[in-house]
Design a binder for these strands. Structure first.
Length: 379
DNA sequence: CATTCCCGCCAAACG
DNA sequence: CGTTTGGCGGGAATG
């Protein structure tokens, strides 16, 4: 067997018409769609990375990328080495809820004792991973007291694609700005306050990756900032409100009502928060970003006029039953481009069916959720 | 030229 | 030690 065909360059004959080599055919976004379509079936519960890689015809490395971001949104969970557990789209709401809560918690506390608190140096914070289950994290703080070990903190997890994804999403869920450019996001989520060098470049690269995946799931969508012609992303997914009545879950938990309530007028200086949120605060102060209040303030339920009517997600059609012929308009999704460029090799045409299934599944899932009236759409 | 972002080297993190 | 995970950045493809 030979290794990967290396990259394009010049299509060295090699039979077959010609492989123009379209970059889009290999994008993470498309791969994500395929991945989702492939595993969103009834019997699926466990997913093997090798299996996924070979079935999707991609290198292992790519699977890690996909899986990491999907896990950040709750669709998957790492079960064991080489093994992931499929949780399904139904797990998304809960995951987002947690992310939002987490995000607000990190930003909320405006209480600051003194005004001079130079938060520099070691970010002791270690983002706990939350999640209700799994997490046998023992407090093994076997530190040798002193004894070197200065540079090298963070077990590396802090730079993970997964965390970046979560923070990126938090930005949308916990902020008032619903249009963010990757560049800004990179600056905001920058875990450092100085080395503004190539670190940002790399971060942006990662954000592009993440954005592609999230876009394929219709969590976000690329747009252009009104004023500036700069490209930015807008959140399409749904947002959940923290608490609500409807006794349903165990544990009272109830009201945390005043979570970061107070008000946005607090000009108090920030305190110490997550390294990333830290930067966020600063930028927030400079710009006019304000944290999102779960207040029922203008519920401007999406103006029914654009393509995304009620469906945060909901791909193409769907509105209701029947009507298989969408009347143009509503550019809908790009199933077109997707189907237009499947895989270069391997005559895979079953994907079309898979896509259909995917859409269908998502739809039913969505209506189920909507029926519960447990979440609320926001823009 | 600038933006997007794929590829895969190679090092941490496990067994 | 081998294997699994996955940062990280070059630089090609695209706009």
């Amino acid at each position: 067997m030979d290794l990967v065909p290396k990259h394009a360059g010049a299509a060295t004959e090699s039979g077959s018409k010609d492989i123009p080599y379209c970059r889009k055919q290999k994008s993470l976004g498309l791969l994500c769609s395929n991945f989702l379509s492939l595993y969103d079936h009834d019997g699926v519960e466990s997913i093997g990375l090798d299996d996924a890689a070979s079935k999707l015809g991609v290198e292992r490395r790519r699977i890690y990328d996909i899986v990491n971001v999907l896990e950040s949104v709750g669709i998957l969970t790492r079960k064991a080495k080489n093994r992931y557990t499929w949780k399904g789209f139904g797990a998304i709401p809960k995951a987002l809820e947690n992310l939002k809560r987490e995000g607000l918690r990190d930003i909320g506390p405006a209480a600051d004792t003194s005004c001079s608190e130079k938060i520099s140096g070691p970010q002791i914070s270690d983002d706990e991973e939350d999640e209700m289950c799994s997490d046998m994290n023992s407090l093994s703080q076997n530190d040798r007291s002193d004894s070197s070990s200065l540079l090298k903190r963070d077990s590396r997890k802090e730079k993970s694609l997964g965390l970046l994804t979560q923070n990126f999403v938090k930005l949308f869920l916990c902020t008032d700005m619903d249009m963010i450019s990757l560049d800004d996001a990179a600056k905001l989520l920058l875990g450092d306050g100085k080395h503004t060098s190539m670190t940002t470049r790399t971060k942006v690269r990662r954000l592009y990756d993440i954005a592609n995946v999230l876009s394929s799931m219709k969590f976000i969508e690329k747009t252009h900032h009104p004023e500036t012609r700069k490209p930015a992303f807008r959140w399409l997914g749904l947002t959940v409100k923290p608490d609500n009545s409807t006794a349903d879950s165990l544990i009272a938990s109830d009201s945390k009502k005043r979570i970061f309530g107070t008000d946005l007028t607090n000009a108090t200086t920030t305190k110490r928060l997550r390294m990333d949120e830290d930067r966020f605060k600063i930028l927030k102060a400079h710009n006019q970003v304000q944290v999102k209040h779960e207040n029922e303030n203008e519920d401007e339920t999406i103006t029914a006029g654009k393509s995304y009517q009620f469906g945060p997600f909901a791909p193409a059609n769907v509105p209701k039953v029947g009507d298989s012929h969408d009347g143009e308009g509503k550019e809908a999704v790009d199933w077109e481009s997707l189907s237009a460029s499947y895989r270069p090799q391997y005559h895979n045409q079953a994907l079309k069916d898979l896509f259909s299934h995917f859409v269908e599944a998502w739809q039913s899932w969505y209506s189920e959720v909507a029926g519960k009236g447990r979440m609320k759409l926001m823009s």
